[in-house]
Computed example of a mutant assay.
Amino acid sequence: MPKGIMVVQSSPSDPSGEDEYDQWYTEVHIPEVLAVPGFVSARRYRVLGDAEPGRHSHLAVYELEADDLTAPVKELRARSSSSAARPPLGPPPVVTIYELLD
C-alpha cells in the first residue's frame, strides 16, 4: 500500500488558551483522526521558542496507509463536519499531504 503523511500547522487563537487547545488536541481530536481508516499514527510538535508573528506554533504529523491517500482525508472532513466543538484556532490551519517516494 502507498504510504504518506498529512502535515497540519495550527495555533490556538490566544496563547493563554494553549492548555485547552492541547487538551482538546490530545483527548478529542487525535482519537477522532485515528478512528478514520487509513490514519495509523499521530505526533505533535511545538515551535521551540516563540513562533514568528503570523506563523503557526504547532505541527501535527499523521501517518497514512491507503491505496488512495486522499480517501482518509475526505472521510476525516466528512466526519469533522458533525464533530464536537473545537477550541478557537488562530489563523486557518495549513494542511499538506505528502506521498512516500520510496
Rank of each mutant, 00 (worst) to 15 (best):
P15L: 00
E20W: 01
I97Y: 04
S16G: 03
Y21D: 05
D50R: 15
S10Y: 03
P92N: 12
P12M: 00
E20S: 12
D14L: 01
P53H: 02
M6C: 10
P37N: 09
G17W: 05
V61G: 03
L48T: 15
V7L: 12
V95I: 11
S13R: 12
E18P: 09
P72G: 01
S11N: 01
K74Q: 14
A71Q: 13
I30G: 08
E99K: 12
A84F: 09
V33E: 03
E18T: 13
W24L: 04
E65L: 12
S81L: 14
I30Q: 09
G54I: 00
L89G: 13
S57K: 11
R79P: 00
R79Q: 07
P31V: 02
L64E: 04
G90R: 06
L64N: 02
G17Y: 03
E65G: 03
S41L: 05
H58I: 04
Y25T: 05
V95T: 15
S11A: 01
A35P: 00
P92V: 07
P37M: 07
E63V: 11
D19Q: 13
Y21I: 01
T70R: 14
L59R: 08
G38T: 09
A51E: 10
R44A: 06
A51G: 10
P37H: 05
G90P: 13
V73P: 06
T96I: 09
H29Q: 11
Q9N: 12
S57V: 03
G49A: 02
P53E: 01
R55N: 10
S57D: 03
L34V: 06
Q9D: 12
D14Y: 09
V94I: 12
S57P: 09
S57N: 03
P72V: 05
L34E: 03
R86H: 13
E27S: 11
R79C: 02
L89V: 15
V28F: 10
D50Q: 14
L64R: 08
T26G: 07
A78R: 15
V40C: 04
E52C: 07
A66V: 05
P88A: 07
M6I: 13
S13G: 08
S83R: 15
A60C: 10
G54Q: 01
H29G: 10
I30F: 04
P31F: 06
S81V: 15
E27D: 14
P92K: 09
R43H: 13
S13H: 11
E75I: 13
V73W: 11
E65D: 11
R77C: 05
F39E: 02
G49L: 00
V8L: 08
A66K: 08
A42G: 11
V36T: 10
S82E: 15
L64M: 11
L64I: 14
K74T: 14
D50C: 06
E52G: 11
D68M: 08
V73I: 14
P12W: 00
M6F: 11
A71Y: 08
V40M: 04
V61R: 04
V61T: 08
L76P: 02
D102E: 13
V7E: 07
G38E: 00
L48C: 12
A66C: 04
H56K: 05
G90Y: 04
